[in-house]
Design a protein around this nucleic acid. Structure first.
Ligand SMILES: [Mn+2]
Ligand SMILES: [Mn+2]
Ligand SMILES: [Mn+2]
Ligand SMILES: [Mn+2]
Lengths: 222, 222
DNA sequence: AATTAATTTTAGACTAATCTAAAAATATAT
DNA sequence: ATATATTTTTAGATTAGTCTAAAATTAATT
């Protein structure tokens, strides 16, 4: 089915809001995400329901159909592959890629994505650590935790971010934190939940505003 | 100024029809090229004139303004750079690139094009032999002639095509003719204007339908 | 020069996507 | 349980881009 750019953006928004398509999403949540009005969302929901991409129960909420979910995942796949391309091949930094990828994700050409994937040597994660769905829509979820919930004196590696705003990513760059960076919590302050963290040979304190936006996973040795 | 995808397509069409912006273009010519109706074209011409991208004299025709020309050339630049990318990096053949480039040319990101240009090592021509305007809009025109006007027993190199339809490009592929191929006319038939041509160690006859769609330039030695 | 033909523009209607304002339904609080 | 607040949907309008049919202009023929 041929979808407009706008329809694709709605599907992707619903997909992200529904946590990979598993929960019900509200009209207002979509309006917030797309930065549009609730009435516009209602109009679009009718169109998407008509095309069997979503199930919409009036006043109750929206879920993606299997077709809708597959379509959304494919857009996410394209978005993340393009982000890898921009960082790996065109010298973009990880805080610059999102807006361009928002445009590139709508280019329609199966061959283009197939070849891009191969050209990038089949990457599994985008520059922010988010997993790239494979051509069949399968997503390899790594069991990650939020840094603010990490335990003391265990080795972790940074595997992703929650806030991927340019401001936050620049903060991380400034402190030499990126995907793969090893870190260890040596203290957590009970008063403000700030953490003392060792990164390489440096020790720094991170506020909860920071630690609640970084994903880590247990990092065996090295 | 922010232009819509449609406005960009109109500007590019006018640019191509006006031979690099130098001649007057008719409403019907644009309608044919864009595959739309003349009345739709008239509507759009009003918008583009309003934005000072074209000069439109009612019933007389259209010319690009300097701003319009610059804008059109930038779209052509992006189109051709993406075509090079698709062929050089993603294994597209020269007859497959056009439709995808039609989409990619509208991606808005100066950095993207700057970096893509560098990544491709500043190509000067697209896969069909058309020159790629530089970042300032300058186009290096090679003095080329149409093969059907070539003289006998002079060495030429193929430098471009006029018809870049998939059908024609596949014909050329089949006979191992591509940009850079050396060839020599050894006879031209007066009756049907067909030519006998030597390509490498093979000799073949080309009808006028073929020879009138190939650009060549004199090829010194080799 | 007058008639016919072709081109171009206008008038009015349509779809996609959006908005504001008002109505309907659901949720929350007393 | 009733009143109030919030969320969601409808109604009606707007803009971009397109279309058909008719009118206006220009070009080509007799
Ligand atoms: Mn992104
Ligand atoms: Mn990302
Ligand atoms: Mn092309
Ligand atoms: Mn080309």
């Amino acid at each position: 089915m041929l979808l407009t750019l706008t329809e694709e953006n709605y599907l992707k928004a619903i997909y992200h809001l529904s946590e990979d398509g598993s929960t019900v999403v509200s009209t207002n949540a979509i309006a917030d995400k797309i930065e549009t009005k609730a009435s516009s969302v209602t109009d679009m929901l009718k169109k998407l329901a008509e095309k069997n991409l979503i199930t919409h129960i009036k006043y109750k909420g929206v879920t993606l159909t299997e077709t809708g979910r597959r379509t959304a995942i494919n857009i996410v796949r394209k978005h993340r592959l393009w982000e890898v391309f921009l960082v790996e091949k065109l010298n973009f930094s990880w805080d610059e890629v999102h807006d361009v990828a928002e445009q590139l994700e709508h280019i329609k050409s199966p061959k283009l994505i197939k070849e891009l994937d191969a050209f990038l040597e089949f990457p599994t994660h985008d520059p922010h650590g988010d997993p790239i769905p494979n051509a069949n829509g399968k997503i390899k979820q790594t069991k990650k935790i939020i840094l603010s919930n990490a335990q003391n004196n265990i080795n972790y590696a940074c595997v992703g971010v929650i806030d991927s705003s340019s401001e936050f990513l620049k903060y991380l760059d400034k402190h030499n934190i990126s995907i793969g960076t090893s870190l260890k919590v040596i203290d957590k302050e009970k008063f403000d939940l700030s953490m003392t963290i060792v990164i390489g040979d440096k020790t720094m304190v991170m506020s909860q505003a920071i630690t609640s936006n970084i994903y880590v996973k247990a990092h065996n040795g090295q």
